[in-house]
Simulated assay, not measured.
Amino acid sequence: MARPHIVTIGGGTGHYTLLTGLRALDAQITAIVTMMDSGGSSGRLRDEYGLLPPGDFTRCLAALSSHPEAVKELFGHRFRAGSLGGHTVRNLLYTAVQEITGSVPLTVDRLHEIFAVKNRVLPVTADRVDLVMHLESDRVIRGEASIDTLADLLEAPVLSVYLDPEAAAYPPALAAIADADLIVLGPGDLFTSLVPNLLVQGVREAIAQSRAKVLYVCNLMTKPNETPGYTVGDFVGTMAMYLGEARLDAVLYNAVWASARLDHYASERSRPVPLGEPDALPEGLLATGDLLAEGRLIRHDPRKLAAAIEELARARGWW
């Protein structure tokens, strides 16, 4: 077959890691990026200029750049002080291009030229929306940044998340999903990086109607404010609930922890995601491997992750 078309859907550091690995494969890649960030540099620019938050979008452009190291060093530079303190060069570039073009599609195209990206990075929506979390205690928290920083303040489990107002999908993103051979969801924070994409009108339906295989890359660690005590089955069950009629064809999970340094994470009530009950997942859904990066931080290794995805796709005859 021709070069497979891999569509990734997500946000945050996990999405950047995934794309850093996939860019080395002989594949066409389209990254669809969450646009609900409301904190840090992205949140400030969104509030001051009325823009879509640029952080996740420009991070993915950097991951897929033809000159990744140079782009990471220069465009990833974060100013330390003054009126620009906290902003990255890539976010300011996004703001400048958006002011010049006044158009989301033109901004997307122009930034691909600036970042020297041959693949595609697309916003999941061009609408400005807020992510809202509803807890089982009936408490409501508005804004991705507020949700992400309340690690010690959530007194009850998450009941649901939704967008306010509702958002329509960016049409080129739906076209990419329709054309995909493989759709990869994750890795990333469940309720702030992954699920928000599935809440955008048209995305779940497009995934359900696509001929693509759908792969979910499960998180490595639980997160005390979002997924305390979650097992692989809990992550998969939540994804399945928000996917609706769309289905998962495989779940990729790290099963090798020999070199992991977990003391720091345990003090923050974050633990490796356990498999849980062996019959919690349908037979044949789970694929395991060594996906862990070396070092102090618990992260997916980009090369290992990309290699595992390619091996899984070939072993199952997806391409």
Rank of each mutant, 00 (worst) to 15 (best):
H15P: 08
R23H: 11
Q28T: 14
T30L: 08
M35Q: 07
G39N: 01
G43K: 02
R44C: 04
R44A: 10
D47S: 13
E48Q: 14
E48G: 00
G55A: 09
G55W: 01
L61R: 02
P68Y: 01
R78P: 03
G82L: 08
G85S: 15
G86E: 11
R90L: 11
L93Q: 06
Y94V: 00
T95G: 10
V97W: 03
Q98S: 15
I100P: 00
L106W: 05
L111S: 07
V121S: 01
L122S: 02
R128Y: 08
V129Y: 03
V132W: 01
E136I: 07
R142I: 15
P157I: 02
V158G: 01
D164Q: 15
I177C: 12
I183G: 13
L185R: 08
P187N: 11
G188N: 07
L190D: 02
F191L: 11
L194G: 01
V195Q: 01
G202D: 11
G202H: 07
V203Y: 06
V203K: 03
Q209N: 12
S210R: 05
V214G: 07
V217C: 14
V217W: 03
E226G: 03
P228D: 13
D234P: 00
M241G: 07
Y242E: 02
A246L: 09
A246D: 04
L252C: 10
A255F: 10
V256S: 13
A260W: 06
A260R: 06
A266G: 05
E268A: 14
R271W: 15
L281W: 08
P282W: 06
L285R: 05
L286W: 06
G289A: 08
L291G: 01
L291R: 03
L292F: 13
G295S: 12
I298H: 06
L305T: 09
A308G: 10
A308E: 05
I309C: 09
E310M: 12
